[in-house]
Amino acid sequence: MAEVTQLLQALKAGDDASDELIEAVYGELRRLAAVKLARERGQTLQATALVHEAWMRIAGPTGDDGSSLRFENRAHFLGAAAEAMRRILIERARRRQSLRHGGGHGHVDLEPDALVELPPSTDLLALDEALQRLTALDPAHGKLVELRFFAGLSIVEAAEVLGISRATADRNWAFARAWLFHELSPESRGGAAADVES
């Protein structure tokens, strides 16, 4: 925690979250998730709850050195947390997939700690790939989806992190979501939306 706090304090307004910060936040979230899941077997863990709890632990009533973290640190933290959560979830999904395919002998070694739950019939890895394509076209859209889905932030929170208006966030979200949905629907793979790249 102390490390995350220091890294956050070192950031100036307008800076992007550094790789180092993402790394540190990633470690914290993983640890937190593992502890929670070990205690509450059979429970689900909302990404948003995880991220917010991590923030509460970092910011606390006061920081370690007695000063409270600045408000803009929260935006940095959430940005880093969204990316970290995305990595955590994708890693789990990859691992799970490889276990499925490599299981052999007709039985699957279940990953002992956790699985990722997705909306029905959504493949997380496919979503991640589509999201990468969207990010290549428009990084802000990619970030928005990351914040909304992987960190579970509300539109208002996500708008704050991105420094855009609520209305813009709404519009962008509607577009990004439709674009991704279209990209993921099997009948239109390589269809109209994909043509954007050509």
Binding site: L37, Q43, I88, E117, L118, R177
Partner: peptide, 15 residues
């Protein structure tokens, strides 16, 4: 068709 898609945020679930 995307009603609700990605709306609820990711969930980590233990087995």
């Amino acid at each position: 068709a995307a009603e609700g898609f990605l709306e609820s945020g990711a969930v980590v679930q233990s087995v």
